[in-house]
Design a protein around this nucleic acid. Structure first.
Length: 687
DNA sequence: GTGCCCTTCGTTTTT
DNA sequence: CGAAGGGCAC
């Protein structure tokens, strides 16, 4: 496929800063990949001089693969294609001394972070803490994250002299004591580092002769500053973005960065990509109608030369279960009409919690499905445990991990001993692990506790030494070494649950192994780097070994960004759900919710089904009492797209009232199951 | 120090 | 209802 005029211009403009305003489905990823190829083949840049920043790991991986097919694996591997966060990690890894870290620094994940903030907040806000802890915690987290994403310095925070500021200062101090950084620090610290040190700025900006940034509308102040500093020598970059798809303002992203760009770079070249190659006319028409209700920085008009396409369906459902059944039915219907992969279907929702009902009904209907994202895997106790072990081995200063696992499995180290340890560590201002090995500390304990502590420390050190000697495979011994399965067995769980948990642990171990071996053309990582990658949720293979499976894709609107699917179901279009009830108060919030809906609609290539529920009845009748507003109201976004005009057909066949018992039965999971069997599901596999 | 029972809560998005 | 975490009793 050839490039159109605008795309070609975007690829060939290499003389200075360039902003590509790329509407949904306008081939922006293609422009980036082809531009990289162009920079190497026509401009003569070396692959290692090029940096491409994406927003998610998934996008980075995809881009890497695409480029590989264009310029060959060997050259593609020398490119730097990563997220802002991994770039930050890279910088901190190289400049750890200047960043006031030890080489073995590790990452605090969201759990560690929350626990720590909880602890600190309880000291500074004792009253609020007992009254509305959750809200307080949320505020503190938000505050800390805001400071970092807005690039506010520690000195500036200190000057605020508020309790929140004190929480921030103590939080940072604790992280430092743990020789750890949090997610936001990866960008915050590396940006400050380059900002305050001319030599480092020089060094890093010399390294990248050309920088490309995808999803630019979702960058925050710190990320933008980082881009500015990294490009300060050559001043050549291309950022690609679409203000209509800005959906991360809650994370500090600010599409004002788009405006700043033209202020900061007077010679900025702006190129608009307005032709959509993804969606049918009907889908695009609907998307445009919706997004017209938002404010825009640059006007743009997306158009498509594709066919009119199928009618968009708007489906009214009784409740979630009906909605899920209807979708299951539609999927099977489609598969009977034409050959298509399960993975051609996507179900998109506002929040992760909406996934489970679809998962359940699809599963009951023998429809393979995969739920993307959702932190559930990393929320499991056994996964947190094993990761804590890995983190502690990588970095013995990590107090959070130490405290988590010092008595898991049970070693007879209880509250008493831990209080002693904490006190000792405070008194001598040393890390707990160091103190735990101190004879003076050990002498304070009874013989059993002494032995337990010593054995624990010896275990950690044993692994550290083995890893230092390069025995990568030793981590596979860790689980047996600590007797984790025995620990699980003593917890009177079912055999099935134990097996499941052990399997989860094996998954983590497998990731570690893969990362350290360097599979899929990735370079082999050190133990410590592998641990950090896992903390960043950057593993090579999927959870449960589910590679690119042929299954219906279930995901949030946020994680659907950048993807496309032939058949899309956009579900739960009700007030409170989309727009979300927590985002109703300001117009800016509503606009962001509207963009979310826009992102959802524009994922669809051929067919789009939008559904909403009439009732909030959950699977659980008792919960209905809890949700006393049983009736749901149609989303305002549905009014805005005035479906009598844009949506060609209003399908209300699924209203409960109109549905005969027989019909309903047919739609029930068991019937779907039979329907599928009677046709022979094997006939529909593949293509 | 461990284990069990009780309360609480279900209200968003992710590197 | 069901998970998860805190508190309390052995």
């Amino acid at each position: 496929m050839k490039l159109n005029q605008a795309q070609l211009e975007a690829v060939q403009y290499v003389d200075g800063p360039c902003f590509v305003l790329a509407g949904a489905g306008s081939g922006k990823t293609r422009v980036i990949t082809i531009k990289i190829e162009y920079l190497i083949k026509n401009i003569g840049l070396l692959p290692k001089q090029i940096l491409a920043v994406t927003f998610t790991n998934k996008a980075a991986k995809e881009m890497q693969e695409r480029i590989e097919t264009n310029i060959g694996k060997e050259r593609a591997e020398q490119l730097t294609i990563c997220t802002f966060h991994s770039l930050g990690l890279e910088i901190l890894k190289k400049e750890y001394i200047r960043a006031d870290l030890k080489a073995s620094f590790t990452l605090f994940d969201t759990h560690d972070q929350l626990k720590l903030i909880d602890e600190i907040a309880s000291q500074y806000f004792p009253r609020d803490y007992s009254e509305n802890r959750k809200e307080l915690l949320e505020n503190c987290c938000e505050y800390i994250s805001n400071i970092k994403s807005s690039l506010i310095t520690l000195e500036e925070v200190q000057a605020q002299n508020t309790n929140l500021a004190k929480v921030f200062i103590e939080y940072q101090a604790y992280l430092k004591a743990c020789n750890a950084v949090d997610m936001d620090d990866l960008i915050y610290k590396s940006t400050l580092l380059l900002k305050n040190n001319e030599d480092l700025r020089q060094k890093w900006s010399l390294r990248f002769a050309y920088i490309l940034v995808d999803e630019y509308q979702d960058t925050n102040v710190s990320q933008y500053q980082l881009l500015k500093m990294l490009s300060s020598y050559y001043k050549k970059f291309t950022v690609v973005g679409d203000d209509d798809q800005a959906i991360y303002s809650w994370r500090g992203a600010d599409s004002k960065n788009i405006e700043n760009l033209s202020n900061d770079f007077k010679d900025l070249k702006v190129i608009k990509l307005e032709q959509n190659y993804r969606s049918s006319q009907n889908i695009l028409e609907l998307a445009n109608l919706l997004i017209e209700n938002n404010d825009h920085i640059y006007e743009k008009a997306i158009y498509s030369e594709l066919e009119q396409g199928e009618d968009i369906l708007l489906v009214e459902c009784m409740d979630s279960e009906d909605e899920a059944r209807y979708i299951a039915y539609k999927i099977i219907e489609r598969r009977m009409l034409e050959h298509c992969k399960w993975s051609s279907f996507a179900i998109l929702f506002r929040s992760n919690s909406q996934a489970s009902i679809f998962e359940k009904i699809l599963h009951g209907s023998n429809i393979p499905n995969i739920v993307y994202g959702g932190e559930s895997f990393f929320d499991r106790a056994e996964v947190k445990d094993i990761i804590a072990y890995l983190k502690l081995i990588a970095n013995t200063h990590d107090e959070m991990s130490l405290m988590r696992i010092i008595n898991i499995p049970r070693r007879g180290i209880g509250k008493e001993t831990l209080t002693k340890l904490t006190d000792f560590s405070k008194r001598y201002a040393k890390g707990s692990f160091e103190c735990a090995m101190h004879t003076k500390f050990l002498s304070m304990l009874g013989p059993n506790e002494q032995k337990a502590i010593q054995e624990f420390c010896a275990l950690i050190i044993k692994y550290q030494q083995a890893i230092a000697k390069g025995h990568k495979d030793i981590i596979t011994n860790l689980i047996t070494d600590i007797n984790y399965s025995q620990y699980l067995q003593s917890s009177k769980l079912s055999d099935k649950a134990i097996k499941f948990k052990l399997n989860n642990i094996q998954t983590v171990i497998k990731w570690m192994f893969e990362l350290m071996q360097g599979q899929n053309g990735q370079k082999a990582l050190s133990f410590k780097d592998a641990v950090n990658k896992i903390c960043m949720r950057q593993m090579l293979s999927k959870i449960d070994g589910e590679e690119e499976v042929n299954a219906v894709q279930l995901m949030t609107l946020h994680s659907s960004k950048g993807l496309e699917f032939p058949y899309v179901f956009l579900v739960g279009l009700e007030e409170g759900s989309l727009p979300h009830k927590k985002s109703l108060s300001t117009d800016a919030q509503i606009q962001e919710e509207r963009r979310l809906a826009y992102v959802g609609i524009t994922r669809a290539q051929k067919s789009l089904v939008i559904s909403y529920r009439l009732n909030n009845k959950t699977v659980n009748p008792i919960l209905t009492a809890f949700d006393k507003g049983v009736k749901l109201k149609k989303s305002r976004f549905l009014d805005e797209i005035s479906y009598y005009k844009a949506v060609k057909k209003l399908k209300s066949q699924y209203k409960n009232a109109n549905l005969s018992t027989e019909h309903k039965q047919k739609l029930a999971s068991s019937a779907l199951d039979e329907l599928l069997k009677s046709v022979g599901s094997a006939a529909f596999e593949g293509r």
